[in-house]
């Protein structure tokens, strides 16, 4: 596992986002076990205390849960996973809408354009053999 970290931003937040993205994209399934602090620290070459803080935050947000004696697991609650998806999408949406508005589009137009774009993307995806609707985000 190698992630590009930005040293200008808090690392623990970046790791949190990374894990959330993995959950959202399905790389980490609900109920999956997460690597231990030590493993993750060694893999990423990051301070273990930073990883610890990440996990604590994730637990506080109920994204992961600790099972005594067994380790840390991704939450199995679907509602929670959906909430994370929405949260991450929220940021994307906010930036997108803001960007479109700056280009001068009105809200109605934005909706129309999005519909057209999604349809076009699906067409492209079908031609190239990709499954529908899946964003190719890593």
């Amino acid at each position: 596992m190698s992630i590009e970290f930005d040293n200008n931003l808090p690392i623990y937040l970046q790791i949190m986002n990374h894990i959330k993205r993995q959950i959202v994209s399905g790389l980490l399934q609900p109920g999956d076990k997460i690597p231990s602090v030590r493993e993750l620290a060694a893999d990423l070459q990051i301070n273990p205390n930073t990883i610890q803080r990440t996990f604590q935050e994730l637990e506080r947000e109920e994204v992961v849960e600790t099972k005594r004696g067994l380790g840390r697991y991704v939450t199995s609650e679907e509602s929670k996973i959906m909430a994370i998806k929405k949260e991450m999408a929220g940021e994307l949406l906010h930036q997108f809408i803001h960007g479109m508005q700056e280009l001068g589009f009105k809200n109605q137009d934005i909706v129309t354009i999005v519909k057209e774009a999604v349809a076009a993307e699906s067409g492209k995806n079908r031609k190239e053999g990709h499954p529908d609707g899946r964003t190719s985000e890593g």
Binding site: F5, N7, I46, N47, P48
Partner: peptide, 26 residues
């Protein structure tokens, strides 16, 4: 360093190559 260090101990690492190492410091 990250893999083998012990949780109740502390490490002081001196360096002038900050960019390479800053991710492992508290």
């Amino acid at each position: 360093i990250v893999r083998f260090y012990r949780e109740d101990s502390s490490l002081i690492i001196s360096t002038h190559l900050v960019g390479d190492m800053e991710r492992i410091f508290d």
